[in-house]
């Protein structure tokens, strides 16, 4: 089993390496004009140059900041509102349908509204990212709070636990698998919206970098930015999975 896992890991790296090699070949044979498609060698060189000059660093940090602030705001608000709605049956009955209507609304559609209201500012970006990222978290929290085992509430009543203690010792931990799953989904949404906001509002970040590189036909820089965005998405999602596994260690014993 262990040996098999290693073979699969090696095979998956081989596939990735194969794709990069193919990309290099396509670029070398100029099947696509070098103006639009740099080889991985040039993209890599641009990446190194960007980091050594510090340009790419500041853009990466810009994007990470947009993503992190928006995601954190969405998490705090989403968990708080979700807990409020999820723990009350009337609220669930009356409010949840409206939420289901709002949720599939493409968030990019509200960007013009947000720009009109707040201008091309960091505040606008924060609002848009948080608004987009709040949905998975809030809906997962509502579901998690609604699904708490009723018996546990009876245990809490017989122990005469305070309302606050019930929320923090019973409801929140019980809903934590749902909440963390929602937060993982939101992470991706937050990254997407960070890039969109940077492109539309010209805010400092990788989105802006990618846009400017494309307009200047600096394809190597463009690809460096795209690669960095991909890595950002991958690393944050892996980090989230690790955090999830750590926080939900108790679930492993249940399966």
């Amino acid at each position: 089993m262990k040996g098999g896992a290693i073979i699969w890991r090696v095979a998956s790296f081989a596939v990735a390496a194969g794709f990069i090699a193919l990309w290099q070949l396509v670029a070398n044979w100029k099947l696509v004009s070098p103006v639009f498609l740099p080889g991985p060698d040039r993209a890599w060189a641009s990446l190194l140059r960007g980091f050594s000059s510090g340009d790419l660093w500041s853009k990466l940090i810009g994007t990470l900041e947009h993503m992190a602030y928006g995601w954190l705001a969405a998490s705090i608000a989403g968990i708080a509102i979700g807990a409020m709605i999820g723990s009350s049956r009337p609220m669930r009955t009356y409010v949840a349908p409206s939420l289901e209507f709002l949720r599939p609304l493409p968030v990019s559609a509200i960007i013009p509204v947000a720009i009109a209201a707040f201008g091309l500012t960091q505040g606008m970006a924060l609002l848009v990212i948080a608004f987009g990222a709040i949905w998975p978290i809030m809906l997962a929290t509502i579901h998690g709070f609604a699904a708490v085992e009723p018996r546990l509430y009876e245990v809490a009543r017989s122990l005469q636990m305070s309302r606050l203690a019930v929320i923090f010792k019973i409801a929140l931990p019980s809903a934590s698998p749902d909440i963390l799953a929602g937060m993982r989904l939101s992470l991706t949404v937050a990254l997407i919206l960070s890039v969109v906001c940077e492109i539309l509002a010209g805010l400092d970040g990788l989105g802006h970098w990618v846009l400017l590189s494309a307009r200047a036909f600096r394809s190597a820089d463009l690809f460096a930015g795209v690669i960095l965005l991909g890595v950002t998405g991958y690393v944050t999602s892996v980090a989230m999975s690790l955090a999830e596994r750590r926080l939900l260690a108790w679930q492993a014993s249940q399966r």
Partner: peptide
Amino acid sequence: QPRREIAIVFQDYGKALLPWRTAAGNVSL
């Protein structure tokens, strides 16, 4: 209302225990 000096042992122990707390944690509650 229920009181702490009256303890209830439920039949469905699987639902009455906190799965995210260890045995010690459950007693600690």
